[in-house]
Computed example of a mutant assay.
Amino acid sequence: MSGLLVLDRAATLAALDPGRLMDAVARALVAVADGTASAPPRIAALAPNGLLGAMPGHVPGLGLAAKLVSVFADPGRPGRSSHRGVIALFDADDGRPLAVLDAEPVTAWRTAAVATHSALALAGPGPVVVVGTGAQARAQVGLLAALRPADPVTVAGRDPAGVRATAALHPAGIAADGIEAAVRGAATVYCCTGATTPVLHRDWLAPGTHVSSVGGSHGPELDAATVRDAALFAEWPGASATPPPSGAHELQGLPADRTVTLLGSVLAGAAPGGHSPGALTVFKSTGHAALDVAAAHVVHATATGRFRRGG
């Protein structure tokens, strides 16, 4: 197919420019919140040992793309799963296929960008902790290192060797001895685990802490008390209105009077943001096709030199 760009994992990752990714993801979040992004409900085909999901989306000014992602149990890591796939980017004006990208780095880095936006919009100053040592935690630490290399980041987890390796990705990274001790002193906690039961507990969190939870695809990362006491934020209404895996485990069955504010509304100035001393805030990410569109746009534009040409 003439003109189709095909990028493997290394080339896709190399084209994920952090600053441009942050800008594009913010635009996508705002488009989700104001209803201008188009993304149908997720669908999946079930196989004996996993599933193949499809996530198409369109974001005005960013493009048209679809992600195909397989989620299968990882025999080498009991209790964890692999997420592998591709993203196909199309011309939004005439439908021409433009690029095929590796979905794994795109998913990890666009998720890290969303989590970082939540902290920038909602967290106060103070220590930053990343909980986890897997692919998503590594992407989160890598993005923070690219954006603010001088600001210390503490990494905590249950695997000491993994904690040290993940902390080493940041020039000011610190390896913590345990999750609870690290979280108790944090202003911002990025929770990036494959947990099936809570790894973060309400009594560990100081007044005013911001929690950005992006893991927990197979169960809750946060306990019910944390969710009960926090102001809640998400990428899209379905995070609380649809069941897992499209919705968040932590946001199921909320009382009728609980509000989940869209992060894009905060970024657009249509909903209150900013840090309130003493107020606990939780951003719960479940992912959204618009975010894949945003990241694919950045990868394609970077790889083809569009940004250098001012496009």
Rank of each mutant, 00 (worst) to 15 (best):
G3C: 04
L4I: 13
V6I: 14
V6D: 03
L7H: 12
D8E: 12
A11G: 14
T12K: 10
A15Q: 06
R20E: 04
V25D: 10
V25N: 14
G35Y: 04
S38G: 05
P40A: 07
P40E: 07
P40K: 06
A47H: 09
N49W: 10
N49A: 15
L51E: 12
L52A: 10
G53F: 02
G53I: 03
P56W: 14
G57V: 04
H58I: 14
A65P: 09
A66V: 15
K67Y: 11
L68M: 14
V71Y: 06
V71C: 14
P75E: 01
P78Y: 12
G85H: 09
V86Y: 05
D93C: 13
R96A: 15
P97F: 08
L98R: 15
P105F: 05
T107D: 12
W109S: 13
A112Y: 08
A112C: 13
A115K: 04
A115C: 14
S118Q: 08
A119G: 11
L120E: 15
A121N: 06
P125Y: 07
V130R: 12
V131R: 11
R138H: 04
G142S: 15
L144N: 12
A145H: 05
A146M: 07
A146E: 08
P149T: 07
D151K: 06
V153Q: 05
V153Y: 03
V153T: 03
A156D: 01
R158C: 08
R158Y: 09
A161F: 04
A167M: 00
A167W: 00
P171T: 09
G173P: 01
A176L: 03
I179L: 11
E180Y: 12
A181R: 08
A187H: 07
V189C: 06
C191K: 01
T193L: 10
T193N: 02
G194Q: 08
P198I: 07
H201M: 10
L205D: 01
G215Y: 09
H218T: 09
G219D: 09
E221I: 11
A225H: 03
T226G: 00
V227F: 00
R228A: 11
D229G: 03
A230R: 01
P237F: 00
A239I: 00
G247Q: 04
L251P: 00
G253D: 05
L254R: 00
V260G: 03
V260N: 02
G264S: 12
G264W: 06
S265N: 13
V266G: 01
G269Q: 07
G274A: 06
H275T: 07
S276H: 14
G278C: 10
K284D: 04
T286C: 14
T286V: 15
G287E: 02
H288Q: 10
A294S: 10
A294V: 11
T302Q: 12
R308W: 02
G310S: 11
G311I: 15
